[in-house]
C-alpha cells in the first residue's frame, strides 16, 4: 500500500457514499420501460400484478418487485423491493426497466431526481 493507493480508494468510496446518501424522495408512481419505450405508468398506491413479456411485476404496499421472469440469470428476481423515487429494477436479458418516479409537484428536482443517483 502506498499513499497514491489510499487517495484512489478514499476518492472512490467518498464519491460512492455521496451518491448513496443523496436525499431520497418517496416514490409516487411506477414507470415500466420495455425495449427503451415506456409501457405505462402506474400509481404505487394501488396494488397491481402486471405481465410484461416474460416478466411479472407486482406493486404491493407501495413497493415494487419482480415476481417472475423467464430470463436466464434471474438477477431481477433477487433484487430488493423498490419504493423510493429514482430506484429501479432492471432485467437486462429482457430489456425491461422498472423505475419509481416521485410526485410531479415535488418541484423541479422531481424531473432530474427520477434519473436516479
Amino acid at each position: 500500500m502506498k499513499r497514491g493507493d489510499l487517495i484512489i480508494i478514499v476518492a472512490a468510496l467518498v464519491l460512492g457514499l455521496l451518491l448513496l446518501f443523496l436525499p431520497a424522495t418517496p416514490g409516487a408512481s411506477l414507470t415500466v420501460i420495455s425495449d427503451g419505450g415506456a409501457v405505462g405508468t402506474y400509481p404505487l398506491s394501488q396494488d397491481l400484478e402486471l405481465t410484461v413479456g416474460g416478466n411479472t411485476v407486482v406493486i404491493s404496499d407501495g413497493a415494487v418487485y419482480m415476481k417472475a421472469a423467464d430470463c436466464p440469470g434471474g438477477d431481477c428476481l433477487s433484487a430488493r423491493k423498490i419504493s423510493r423515487a429514482g430506484e429501479s429494477i432492471v432485467c437486462l436479458p429482457n430489456r425491461l426497466v422498472l423505475r419509481i418516479d416521485g410526485k410531479p409537484e415535488d418541484g423541479p428536482d422531481a424531473m432530474t431526481g427520477g434519473v436516479g443517483g
Partner: peptide, 12 residues
C-alpha cells in the same frame, strides 16, 4: 442497452 439512465441508481 436499456436506453434508460435508470440503471445509474446502482452507481453508488
Amino acid at each position: 442497452v436499456t436506453e434508460s439512465l435508470a440503471v445509474f441508481a446502482y452507481a453508488p
